[in-house]
Computed example of a mutant assay.
Amino acid sequence: MEAILRSGLVFGKAALLGGLLAGCVETQEAQQATGQAASGTFTAGSPLGVMVEDQFSPMSENVKVYGGVVNAESCSYHEGGDLIVVVNRGVNQDQVPNDGFISLLNHDGSVHTANWIGTNREGLILNHPLGSDTWDGRLYVADRDGGTSDQDPSVSVIRWFDLETGAPMGEVPIDDSEGFNDLAIAEDGTIYATDTGASRLYEVSPDGSWRVLLDGAPLNLPNGVAMDNDGNIVIVNIGDAEVITLSPTGATLATEQAVQAGNDGLVILEDGTKYVSSVREGGVSRIRPGEPAELIASNIPSAASMCYDVGGNQLVIPLNPNNAVAIVPLD
């Protein structure tokens, strides 16, 4: 299979926004420096285009722009818009608080909306988001508060947004965790989130209550998490090559092996086929039901928490500090 690298060629968020979007950069930076949401009304960003005499005109269809990602960690498929939702961490909290943003890409990796959530910080807190998932018309992200200095501890916060408008809808802090890595959502709205550093799996109920579902083995620096077609929880570890299927109560049901260890991304298709990306070794393993894993792509730098682009029948893999996504077409 051919892996296609769509490089952002972007050296900073300010450079990206300055070239693609009109806006008041000084005002936005002032809002970010506080690490708090501004008191104004949230506004989502527009697709690429220009504003002339207060009239917005979209870019013509014969133009393609690549980029729109900065330190991207994860992505999800936007079924309603038939777009790829890319979650960008931005810079670290101790550099610029509240710097995360969400961009929208087309199937070929070109930019649809460079800064959909985060075009300004009015009514928005999105500090340093990592994993993401969609459920019931919402985009959920594993974000965090704090971390602006050694005296400001990080706290995991799950935030969610309206998939149609991009508007913030709610959040729940988990003060027992310093930072979730990934999350997945069951059909009933229960959220399962991995804490890699603590080797824990958390369960967050729809009412906001939470508990530690699993602490320690078989978790070994757990990272990617997804729900399978039977409502079970599947997790990949960074610390080994195991792909672990758990019941909703945390009991181990099955253990499979990816080709490589150091895994981050996890996608499960309707036929039960699993795809696993290794952020450390750069490969994508395919595990068909009842068959051993096989490597279908290799040497992808910093292959993070990937998603399945249904409309393009392909894997989309954010590449962390490379400010790009990789695209792996599927058979």
Rank of each mutant, 00 (worst) to 15 (best):
Val259Asn: 13
Gln260Gly: 04
Ala261Ser: 08
Gly262Ser: 07
Gly262Met: 04
Asn263Val: 02
Asn263Glu: 09
Asp264Phe: 08
Asp264Trp: 03
Asp264Gly: 05
Asp264Ser: 07
Gly265His: 07
Gly265Lys: 04
Leu266Arg: 01
Leu266Gln: 04
Val267Gly: 14
Ile268Val: 10
Ile268Cys: 13
Glu270Ile: 02
Glu270Phe: 10
Asp271Gly: 10
Asp271Arg: 02
Gly272Trp: 04
Gly272Met: 10
Thr273Ala: 14
Thr273Gly: 05
Thr273Lys: 14
Tyr275Asp: 08
Tyr275Pro: 09
Tyr275Arg: 00
Val276Glu: 06
Val276Asn: 01
Val276Ser: 15
Val276Pro: 08
Val276Met: 05
Ser277Pro: 05
Ser277Gly: 05
Ser278Met: 00
Val279Asn: 13
Val279Cys: 12
Arg280Trp: 09
Glu281Asp: 09
Glu281Lys: 04
Glu281Phe: 05
Gly282Tyr: 03
Val284Lys: 06
Val284Ala: 05
Arg286Asp: 11
Arg286Gly: 12
Arg286Pro: 15
Ile287Val: 06
Arg288Leu: 09
Arg288Gly: 13
Arg288Ile: 01
Pro289Gly: 03
Pro289His: 04
Glu291Met: 08
Glu294His: 10
Leu295Val: 06
Ala297Lys: 00
Ala297Gly: 11
Ala297Glu: 03
Ser298Thr: 05
Asn299Pro: 12
Ile300Asp: 08
Ile300Arg: 08
Pro301Phe: 11
Pro301Asn: 09
Ser302Pro: 02
Ala303Asp: 15
Ala303Trp: 05
Ser305Glu: 14
Ser305Cys: 14
Ser305Asp: 14
Met306Pro: 15
Cys307Phe: 03
Asp309His: 10
Asp309Ser: 11
Asp309Asn: 11
Val310His: 10
Gly312Glu: 00
Gln314Met: 07
Leu315Thr: 02
Leu315Asn: 05
Leu315Val: 04
Ile317Trp: 04
Pro318Tyr: 14
Pro318Asn: 12
Asn320Glu: 14
Pro321Val: 12
Asn322Phe: 09
Asn322Gln: 10
